[in-house]
Computed example of a mutant assay.
Amino acid sequence: MVWPVTAVRAEATERTPRHGYALRRAGGLLLAAAALAVMALLSLAVGAKSIGFGAVFDALAHHGGGPDDVVVRSLRLPRTLLGICVGAALGLAGVLMQGLTRNPLADPGLLGINSGAAAAIVAGIGFFGLGSPGQYVWFSLAGAAVTAVVVYFVGSGGRAGATPVRLVLAGTAVAAALTAFVQTMLLLSPQVFDQYRFWQLGSLAGRDLGVLGRLLPFLAAGAVLALALARPLNAIVLGDDAGRALGVHLGRTRALGALAITLLCGAATAAAGPLVFIGLAMPYIARALVGPDHRWLLPYSAVLSPVLLLAADVLGRIVAPPGELQVGLVVAFLGAPVFIGLVLRKKAAA
C-alpha cells in the first residue's frame, strides 16, 4: 500500500507549481480589473469641469438633477461605458488576429475589417445622408461582415485552404481596394469629407447610451465566441499539423475567429471610429505578462485594453483645456513608441 501514497504525493507535488502559477495569474487579473475600476472613476471625474469623487458617487447613487449629476450621468457615464466596451472588443479582436495568423504583430485591420466598416460608413454618408454615430452602426457592421466574407472566400481558394498567409494577403488586397474607394468618395464630395473626418479621428465623445445599447448584443456575442476559441487557438499557434493532430478543425476555427473579429471590430469601429494600436499593443503586453495561453491571454487583453483607451481619453481632456484632443489621436501618440519598440525588439531577436 506504499505505492498509492507515493503516487498521490508525486501528483500533489506536480500540481502545486501549476496551482500557484494559476493563482498568480488570477491575482494579476484582479489587479488589472482594479486598475480598470480606478481609470473608470477618473474618467467620470476628470474633464473640462473637475468633479470630486464623492460627488461622482453621489451622482451615480442619487440622481438629483444638479449640474454635476447631469455631467456625470448624461455625458461621462456613457463615454466611460463605451470606452470599456470598445477597448475590450479591440483587445479581444487583436488576440484573435494574432492567434489566427500566428503573427504577434498583427492587428484587426490586417483582415481589412476596419477598411470595410469605413467604406460602408462613407457610402452611407454619401448615398443615404447618415449624420450620427447611432446611424453608422448598421452600415459599419454590414461593411465589416461583407469584407470578412470576401477576404475568407478569397483567402480559402485553392488546395491549401485558408492559411494565415493567404488570409493576410487577401485582407491586404481587399483593404487597398476599399481604401481607394473611400479616398475617391472623399475627393468627390466635400460633405462626405466633412462628416467622415471627425469620425475617422476616433472619439468616445458625443455618444449616448442608445449607441451602446445597439452595439452591446454584437459585442457580447463576439466576446463569448472569442473566449470559446481559447483552446483551439492554443493548438493552432503550434502549427496546422499540430492543430490537426490535437483534433482541432482548422477551417471551422478560423471561420469562427473571423466572425468574432467581425462582430467585435465592426461594432467598436462604428461606435468610436478606427482606433489604432490598441488591438496590437495590449495583446502583446498581456502576452508578456501571462504567456501564450489564450485561456488567460484573452481575459487579460479584455481588461487591459480599456485601461489604455480610458487613460488616453482622460489625457486628451486635460492636455488642451478648455478643449480636448480626440482619443484616436492620443492613442496614436501613445501607441507609436510602443510599436517602434516592438519592431526593434523583434529585429534584435532575429
Rank of each mutant, 00 (worst) to 15 (best):
A312S: 12
F53Y: 14
G155Y: 09
G28I: 02
L280D: 04
S189D: 15
R287C: 10
G323I: 00
G239R: 03
D241K: 10
L186C: 04
L280N: 08
G65W: 01
A312C: 13
A12S: 10
V8R: 15
F181D: 03
A7D: 06
V314N: 08
V71Q: 07
T6D: 04
V86I: 13
D107N: 13
D240P: 10
L264H: 11
V86W: 11
P306K: 06
L141R: 09
A311F: 14
G247P: 12
Y196C: 05
L60N: 02
A148H: 11
I121A: 04
I318W: 08
L344E: 10
G239S: 06
G112D: 04
G112K: 07
F57C: 09
P299F: 05
G109Q: 04
S301D: 07
V46M: 09
L75D: 09
S74Y: 06
G126Q: 13
A22T: 12
G112W: 03
R254G: 09
G134S: 12
V46N: 09
Q98E: 03
Q195H: 13
D194K: 13
V237I: 15
A26Q: 09
V331Q: 03
I318C: 00
G112H: 05
A175L: 04
G112M: 08
G279F: 05
I261D: 02
G323F: 00
A272I: 11
L275F: 05
T262D: 08
